[in-house]
Amino acid sequence: MLLVPCPNCGPRSSQDLTYGGESHSRPDPKTATPEEWRTYLYLRDNPSGWLVETWYCSSGCRRWFKLERHTLTGELRDPILPGSKTGVASDEATNIQGGTK
């Protein structure tokens, strides 16, 4: 079990949240090529190290947010809500996968 720091609810068991996967910027539908869509939809970086990913606080505040997770150590840091201007993930914060449930 991971202890996931929700920006609203504080540290919560990962069982109370839904994993949203790696965070990627969505390509512009007007100009994206099929290759770019395919990359966005199916390909993952899967780094060994820090990874920006999305989580959905399904049992708590019911908000999507991003954080960074270290894929080797399981360490979690810098949770951030969409639209927030602070933290490392802010440049992609408006492109959170899945939107609001």
């Binding site: 609810c9 069982q15 109370d16 606080c57 399904s58 049992s59 708590g60 505040c61 019911r62």
Partner: peptide, 10 residues
């Protein structure tokens, strides 16, 4: 007041 899963019930 907290949102929680209690006995698998949100």
């Amino acid at each position: 007041a907290v949102g929680a899963s209690v006995a698998k019930v949100t």
